[in-house]
Design a protein around this nucleic acid. Structure first.
Length: 474
RNA sequence: CGCGGGGUAGAGCAGUUGGCAGCUCGGCAGGCCCAUAACCUGCAGGUCGCGGGUUCGAGUCCCGCCCCCGCAACCA
C-alpha cells in the first residue's frame, strides 16, 4: 500500500548565490524523498525561491536592471542545483509566479476576518536601509548603518492576531500533533510561545515596498509582508488557488525541512496562519543545524562562503552529498574545512567504498572472466530506523561498517589464493562479497544515487569488469 | 540581564532510554600482496571543563561555578 509523502525545503532569497548551508538542507530533503520513493510512496518534493523581498529591488536598481530580470537570473542559479547535486525535486515554485500570488492572496482572504486588523505603527525609518529601527537599536539616535537621523514616520499596516493562537499552538506542538524535531528545538519553541506571542505586522505600504510583492487583496495601498507570502508557497505550489488537485492529494505536508534560523516562522506564524484559514497543519518540522567554516560563521564580509557548485566541480556530486549527509551533523552545527572534506573523501569513499569495488571487481574479472551471479541480499543492519529519525550520519556509518565487513571477508578468505587450490570455494566467497556490495549499493541509493546505480549496474552485469575508479584518491 | 548550543585521546568529532568510554585522521608495531601506496590485525594515548549531589552504578540525571560560541522576531 503506497502512502503519499509531501516534503519541502525552505525557499531561499535570490539576492545571494546558493551556499553550502542551503545545499545541506536540500540534499537532506532529497535523501528523504528518494528513500520514500524507494519505499513505494507517492512523493512530492518541493523547493523554490523567495523573490518578493525589497532586497531584490535594491540589488536590481544597483545593476540597473528590472527586478524581475534579476530574479529570473538568480532563480535559475538555484534551479541549477538540481543538476549539480543530482536532486530529485518534482516541483519548483517561485513567489513571483501568478499561481503563487493568487494563492497567497487566497490564503489571506481565507483567514478569519477577526484575525487580520489594521493598526497604526510608528517607528524610526531609515531611508538608506529602507527599514524600521527600534529606538534601542539606534546609536545616539542615528542609524547604525548610515549614521543619519532616521525619520519618525507613522504608517497604517495590517496585523495578524497571533495572540489568538497561543494556547492552541502550544498544545499542538507539545502533543507532537505538529512535531518539531529535534527535541531541543521543540523545547526552544514551546518556551518561546510560553513567553507570550505578540501580534505581528503582515503588510507594509506599497510605496515603501516599491510596489514589489504580493498586493493585499482589496487594498492597493498595501503589500504583504514577505514572510506571509513566502510561507504560503507550501500550498500555492499545490495549486491552492486553482483546482486544488495536488492540494487535495498532498496537503498536509509530511515534513518541512528548514534551518534553525527560521524556526519561528515555521513553528509559530505558519501554523497560526493555517489555523486561521481552517487548513490542516503540517505533520513535522525538521530543523537542521548550520555549517560554519573553519570555526567561523559563514558570511560575505568574511569571504568564507562555500559555493556548492565549486565543490561539486572539484570533487563530484556524490562526494559532496556524502560529506553533507555523513560528516555534517543533521541537527547540530558543524564545521566545514577543505582539509576535513578531503580526509573524509579519502577515508570513506576512495579507500573504503571505491577500493572495495575495485579489488572485488578485479578479482572476479581476472579469475572468473567476470562471470559471477549476484543478487541483492538484505543487510543485517538496516538503515530505516536512522533515516526516519533524520540520522543520515548514523545511517551512513552503518553502511560504512558493512564495507569494512566486506573488506574483512576478503582478507580472511584470501580468494586470490583460493583460486589456485579450490575454485568452488573462491567462487563462493566472491559471490558472497559481490552480493554484499550490491546490497550496500541498494542501501546507498537515497544518499549517493548515481554511485549506487553505477555499482548495481556493474555487479549485476552478465560480465563483471573492473572499470574506472569511482572515487580516485586525492 | 534573557534564551540556546558547546567544553570527551595529539587533531576533528559520535556517544539514543544512566550499565565495561567510541569513530575518523595522525603515531607505533605487525600481516597481506587481490585492490585506488589502498585493505586487515594489534598497541599507545582520556581525572569525559571544575566542584558538589542522586544512584548498586553518571560523559549521560539534579544543583552551583568557570571558559567558548550563537541568537535576541524578516539569516539554510
Amino acid at each position: 500500500m503506497s502512502k503519499k509523502f509531501y516534503i519541502t525545503t525552505a525557499i531561499p532569497y535570490v539576492n545571494a548565490k546558493p551556499h553550502i548551508g542551503f545545499a545541506l538542507e536540500i540534499v537532506q530533503a532529497d535523501a528523504l524523498a528518494r528513500y520514500h520513493r524507494e519505499a513505494g510512496d507517492e512523493v512530492l518534493f518541493l523547493t523554490g525561491t523567495d523573490e518578493n523581498s525589497l532586497k531584490n529591488v535594491q540589488a536590481a536598481a544597483k545593476e540597473d536592471i528590472a527586478t524581475q530580470a534579476l530574479c529570473d537570473r538568480n532563480a535559475a542559479i538555484f534551479f541549477d542545483l538540481k543538476n549539480a547535486l543530482n536532486l530529485s525535486f518534482d516541483s519548483f515554485i517561485r513567489t513571483t509566479e501568478e499561481r503563487h500570488i493568487l494563492g497567497a492572496q487566497k490564503l489571506w482572504s481565507t483567514c478569519k476576518k477577526e484575525d487580520i486588523y489594521k493598526k497604526k505603527y510608528k517607528g524610526f525609518y531609515c531611508v538608506g536601509c529602507e527599514a524600521f529601527y527600534a529606538e534601542k537599536d539606534l546609536t545616539d539616535g542615528l542609524c547604525p548603518e548610515h549614521k543619519t537621523k532616521p525619520d519618525l514616520i507613522e504608517e497604517e499596516n495590517y496585523f495578524f492576531k497571533l495572540s489568538n493562537y497561543q494556547d492552541e499552538l502550544l498544545k499542538l506542538i507539545e502533543s507532537d500533533k505538529y512535531q518539531v524535531v529535534p527535541e531541543t528545538k521543540k523545547n526552544e519553541i514551546t518556551s518561546f510561545i510560553k513567553m507570550g506571542l505578540e501580534d505581528f505586522s503582515i503588510s507594509r505600504s506599497t510605496e515603501r515596498a516599491h510596489g514589489w510583492g504580493v498586493p493585499v487583496p482589496g487594498d492597493e495601498s498595501q503589500i504583504m509582508y514577505v514572510w506571509f507570502d513566502a510561507l504560503s508557497n507550501y500550498i500555492t505550489a499545490l495549486d491552492y488557488a486553482g483546482e486544488q488537485k495536488l492540494f487535495n492529494q498532498f496537503w498536509p505536508a509530511d515534513v518541512h525541512v528548514v534551518g534553525k534560523g527560521v524556526i519561528r516562522f515555521h513553528a509559530v506564524y505558519w501554523p497560526a496562519m493555517l489555523l486561521s484559514a481552517g487548513l490542516e497543519l503540517p505533520k513535522e518540522l525538521f530543523v537542521h543545524g548550520y555549517i560554519n567554516v573553519g570555526g567561523e560563521k559563514m558570511s560575505k564580509s568574511l569571504g568564507n562562503v562555500i559555493d556548492p557548485f565549486e565543490l561539486v566541480q572539484q570533487y563530484g556530486t556524490d562526494a559532496v552529498r556524502y560529506y553533507l549527509l555523513k560528516q555534517v551533523h543533521p541537527v547540530e552545527d558543524s564545521d566545514f574545512t577543505v582539509e576535513k572534506f578531503e580526509e573524509v573523501y579519502n577515508a570513506d569513499l576512495a579507500n573504503g567504498l571505491g577500493n572495495l569495488i575495485s579489488r572485488t571487481s578485479n578479482l572476479i574479472e581476472k579469475n572468473f572472466d567476470g562471470k559471477i551471479k549476484t543478487k541483492s541480499v538484505k543487510l543485517k543492519t538496516n538503515t530505516d530506523g536512522f533515516i526516519k529519525e533524520y540520522r543520515f550520519d548514523s545511517a551512513l556509518k552503518l553502511i560504512q561498517e558493512q564495507i569494512t565487513v566486506a573488506d574483512q571477508m576478503i582478507d580472511r578468505e584470501k580468494p586470490w589464493e583460493l583460486v589456485k587450490t579450490d575454485t568452488n570455494k573462491a567462487e563462493e566467497v566472491l559471490t558472497d562479497v559481490a552480493n554484499k556490495i550490491v546490497s550496500i549499493a541498494v542501501a546507498l541509493k537515497p544518499f549517493l544515487p548515481a554511485t549506487a546505480e553505477k555499482i548495481i549496474a556493474q555487479f549485476t552485469a552478465a560480465k563483471i569488469v573492473k572499470g574506472e575508479s569511482l572515487f580516485p584518491r586525492i
